[in-house]
Design a protein around this nucleic acid. Structure first.
Lengths: 343, 343
DNA sequence: GAATCACTTCAAAGCGCTTTGGATGTCTGA
DNA sequence: TCAGACATCCAAAGCGCTTTGAAGTGATTC
């Protein structure tokens, strides 16, 4: 059943039927009801492909995931992000188009997707410090929004980010307040902008407390359980082991905890852990009493907000760039405590 | 730059240009080269919306995620699955369309997406035992493939599943071989087909060994770390605690481990854990020496294969239903050992 | 009674591609 | 010399919708 058939059955023009269905004012209320009834009766649904061709809008938002970064990207955090974004897309009648492309094809993919008119807007994930995608997309004349920032990119662009530096600075300062002096950092890959900023926050807090950072206490790598474990394991094996850890994600924190407990040490008493908590739905950090003391910021909420901002931008293109900086919240859990005496 | 413009510059008809670009034989090799050169020069890309309207194919596969099941669906496993599927989609020129819909709208969403012609095929995730989506989609005349099975659905459909029953039966038997007699089961939600089958496998193994199952030793719920922890915690508190656990996912196993270690018990010596391991990329179960003894089956590989099967079905609709049953592999890790004497 | 207006409706022209059904010219073989 | 085969190319008709520009009503106004 298509529009022509439906309009023939109703003895109306396609114009009128289309307008009735799309809520245009210039159609008699009675006619509109007749049309609506017939549409329901014949189970008519406008063909979306024809619709997008006619309107010039695809009603879909693109997310492009590069392959080699896959483990970083199609990850635990990404899943929650798209859950949030998808919620908003649904509300506004948009769908989400995911494409996975080989790393070296990524820029091409953006271009392809934009010029082929497959999507109305693009979300850029996990930017690196000097991410080429941003200036590339700027030249492409398609609305896009970055989840995160790219410090070294100078062209203006829309973004939403957590204040990673301040978050980790606050978290580290909290450990310092508990008299910890040797604090290990287990960071994400530092070519990622957020990881770099977190490192900056860590360094800033130490420096403010008059402590000289030690490279032996700073690790970076993928935010996985084994990497958290291995990093903590190494540091705890050293002659001057840390008394506290800052972990860049709850997944690495799980690994750190394992390394601690493996030694018969008690988390929160013998060794403290503070981590960044993206408030992931199925790896929750405890409901009433959080397991880990953490800097928390919901990535799902970020997904929702990114979607809103991007849709705004698509609807009203002439408006300027949108930028939003969120602060993470310090959550006190059971994983931190005062530095044991004499250490 | 569109087809008309391009063909005018080349002094050729749209037909010829289109055919040249799409590799049809009835075009002179020299002409084809001219066309290709011009297309590259003017950076021409066919508008995908026009293309899909003209061809009647949308070149995209739908994945629909219901809201209330979100925590089950947009989860750790789902992320890896779509990573696998997306890889294959990219190879075949398909894109993936994700939509999140409220639970009560889900059937409508399938219908909408199918009848509006938004996608060429659909992947159904995490079926329940009597999943209404399957017969619904069967009536909708659109290719679809279920990742998992729905035991109580009688209409034929295409699916790919892991032999969950056999997997957990094998795993439980392994624990029995180690002389464990009290084995706790920490399962997923049993309205899900896979969870039911895993329970069946657990029961079958116990029964075969002449052991009467106890409801006190069987839990089901979301496959999260806290649920794993809480379930194990409870069971270990009972008067006759289990000496081994079967966990339905590596995430719940992490919780079980926490409950064990919290008591100062050693995993693999005092208490054994066997879990189902979906071989998730960023929660890997150890590389050379697995942390957990597990029944392993890669969900990413399943995603890849599901995509292949579905694309096949889209390309050759007249072929019958595709079904594939995969066996999980027993991986011996450090989390299991013989049952301590006298227990 | 003519002119104006608001309210409805419609025919037809796109949107940018693919594909059908020729048309044209060249070449072959009898 | 001419039918048939072959190789190339093209005009035009879709695909199913939206939207422009115009037209047909009565009702209202002067």
């Amino acid at each position: 059943m298509n529009l022509r058939e439906l309009s023939e059955r109703l003895n109306l023009s396609q114009t009128t039927v289309s307008r009735a269905l799309n809520g245009y004012p210039e159609v008699n209320e009675e006619t509109r009801k007749r049309v609506a009834a017939a549409a329901a009766k014949f189970n008519y649904r406008p063909n979306i492909r024809a619709q997008t061709l006619a309107t010039g809008r695809s009603m879909s938002i693109g997310h492009i995931i590069p392959f080699s970064k896959q483990n970083e990207m199609v990850n635990i955090v990404f899943a929650d992000f798209i859950a949030g974004a998808g919620e908003i897309y649904a509300q506004h009648g948009y769908s989400m188009s995911l494409s996975l492309v080989r790393d070296e094809d990524e820029l091409n993919a953006y271009q392809g997707v934009a010029e082929k008119g497959a999507v109305d807007g693009i979300i850029v994930h996990s930017p690196a410090r000097d991410d080429p995608r941003i200036s590339f997309l700027s030249n492409l004349d398609i609305p896009f929004l970055v989840h995160g920032r790219a410090s070294e990119v100078t062209t203006p662009y829309s973004w939403l980010d957590v204040n990673n530096k301040r978050a980790i600075e606050t978290g580290t300062a909290h450990l310092l307040d508990l008299d910890h002096r040797r604090i290990g950092l287990i960071n994400g890959e530092e070519r990622m902008d957020f990881a770099q900023r977190r490192r900056d926050g860590y360094l800033a807090a130490l420096t403010a407390a008059g402590i000289t950072p030690e490279t032996a206490l700073m690790r970076s790598g993928e935010m996985s359980e084994p990497h958290g474990y291995a990093s903590a394991h190494d540091m705890l094996d050293s002659t001057e082991p840390p008394t506290a850890f800052v972990a860049s994600s709850i997944v690495s924190a799980l690994g750190v905890r394992r390394a601690i407990e493996e030694r018969g040490l008690v988390m929160g008493r013998d060794i403290s852990i503070l981590c960044f908590d993206d408030d992931i739905s199925y790896l929750p950090n405890g409901r009433t009493t959080p397991v880990f003391t953490a800097m928390r910021s919901s990535v799902r909420a970020a997904g929702r907000r990114c979607a809103e901002l991007l849709i705004d931008q698509i609807k009203i293109p002439q408006q300027g760039m949108a930028t939003e900086l969120w602060d993470a919240e310090l959550i006190i859990g059971g994983s931190t405590g005062p530095c044991p005496k004499g250490r």
